[in-house]
Amino acid sequence: MTTEATLPSTSASPTARQVWTRTRGIVLAAVLLLAAAVAIAAVRSGERHGVLDPRAADPYGSRAVAELLADRGVSTRVVTTLDEARAAAGPDTTLLVAVPDLLTHGQQDALHSATADSGGRTVLVAPGGWSVERLAPGVVADPATSLDSALSPDCALPAARRAGSADTGGIRYTVTHPGSDECYPSERLPTLVRVPAASGDGDTVVLGAPDILYNDTLDKQGNASLALQLLGSRPHLVWYLPSLSDATAADPDEQRDLFDLLPSGWLWGTLQLFFAAGLAALWRARRLGPLVPEKLPVAIRASETVEGRARLYRKAGAHDRAANALRSTTRTRLAPLVGVPVAQAHAPEALLPALSAHLHDHGDGQTLHSLLFGPPPGDDAALVSLADQLDALEREVRRS
């Protein structure tokens, strides 16, 4: 009774445990980054719920200023569509546009046409370069924002002089419209601008930051005084909260680029991530320099190496490579035996005549050429037969 020995597995593929050990650091970092992003998004969304909404009592809402205006006889009405905002424009109305940059260019042109000669006041809250030039011609947003929040009025506008210092630091503007009031400058550029209408008693107020309208900061500096004076000059206040669901926002002739929709902070954050990734790549990259020999921790027998490579050849079906290795090694060993330099061992015109002469009657030139330089075998059986024939040829040359 015989027992068949089971050879140990020599697979070069990493196991699941090895893969997990190598990648667990990256996976853990990705999970932590994702969890931090979700947590920050949840906190920020919770903090900013109802931002600039006169009905919201949270820190970034504007319910406090609406109630103070109501105590002074100014009614506040919230609208969310462009048609309602245009219809409400009039000489006895102050129209506040909460987020002008959400309006498309078509909406901005329509809103400016409705308010330009209405005789009322239009208040634009923190308009950027996307909207301010259309809603307030002659005013251009500066790319650099103010680093200071609380600023001094430094202008002749009565409302600003009575309010004193206020948290208007935000977007700065360059003004070319004649007769405009430029207040609360930061590095010589104003953060609050009043542009008078070309005809009538109306005007447009450009406010560089929304801080004076927030519930959380209304009682700071002269914020409450400035907000009440800017919004309480008419008996009616229409608070326009632009909405993406507004039907007038769908303009087939106008397309905004993705970068126009992203805040500038996201672009700088992405650039910082790319910079950090580059530094991490340099840190983890291999050191450049000459190869350094290293002793193996254990001695590997030649038979194991041959067996491992043979299994790889068999798994890949590389009969041509295996046959080429066998023939090349045989030619290298036969060349010194028949008086041919090793450098010419792989040249048929040098090896075959010497080999035929050495074998005398046993050497057939055509057979030897097919055996030592022929085409690769087509299957495993032909490869085994080729190995046996090469072995027999070498034994015969050594014996003769």
Score class of each variant (00 low, 15 high):
Thr15His: 07
Arg17Phe: 10
Arg24Pro: 00
Gly25Pro: 01
Glu47Ser: 14
Glu47Ile: 10
Leu52Tyr: 05
Leu69Arg: 04
Ala70Gly: 09
Asp71Cys: 03
Val78Asp: 00
Val78Pro: 00
Val79Thr: 10
Thr80Trp: 06
Ala85Leu: 07
Arg86Thr: 08
Ala89Pro: 05
Pro91Asp: 13
Thr94Asn: 02
Leu95Asn: 00
Leu96Gln: 07
His105Phe: 11
His105Asn: 14
Leu111Trp: 10
Thr115Lys: 09
Arg121Ile: 08
Thr122Asp: 04
Trp130Tyr: 07
Glu133Ala: 14
Leu135Tyr: 11
Ala136Tyr: 04
Pro143Cys: 08
Ser149Val: 06
Leu151Ser: 03
Asp154Ser: 14
Asp154Asn: 15
Leu157Gln: 10
Ala159Lys: 07
Ala163Phe: 02
Ser165Gly: 02
Ser165Asn: 05
Ser165Asp: 10
Gly170Ile: 11
Ile171Glu: 08
Thr174His: 14
Glu182Cys: 15
Leu189Glu: 11
Val193Arg: 01
Ala197Val: 09
Ser199Ala: 15
Thr204Trp: 01
Val205Asn: 04
Asp211Lys: 10
Asp211Ile: 02
Leu218Glu: 10
Lys220Pro: 00
Gln221Leu: 12
Gly222Asp: 03
Ala224Gly: 03
Leu226Gly: 06
Leu226Ser: 05
Ala227Trp: 03
Leu228Thr: 03
Gln229Lys: 06
Gln229Gly: 14
Ser233Thr: 15
Arg234Phe: 06
Val238Arg: 01
Ser245Glu: 14
Asp253Phe: 14
Gln255Ile: 09
Arg256Cys: 07
Leu261Gln: 04
Leu273Phe: 11
Phe274Ile: 09
Ala281Gln: 05
Ala281Arg: 09
Trp283Ala: 07
Arg284Ala: 10
Arg287Gln: 13
Gly289Tyr: 05
Pro290Glu: 03
Pro290Ala: 03
Leu291Arg: 12
Ala302Cys: 01
Ala310Ser: 02
Tyr313Val: 08
Lys315Met: 07
Gly317Ala: 08
Ala318Met: 07
Asn324Arg: 12
Ala325Pro: 00
Arg327Asn: 11
Ser328Tyr: 10
Pro336Trp: 01
Val338Cys: 04
His346Asn: 14
Ala347Tyr: 12
Leu351Thr: 10
Leu352Arg: 06
Leu355Ser: 07
His358Leu: 01
Asp364His: 14
Asp379Ala: 00
Asp379Asn: 13
Val384Gln: 15
Ser385Gln: 12
Ala387Cys: 03
Leu393Glu: 13
Arg398Asp: 09
Ser400Val: 13
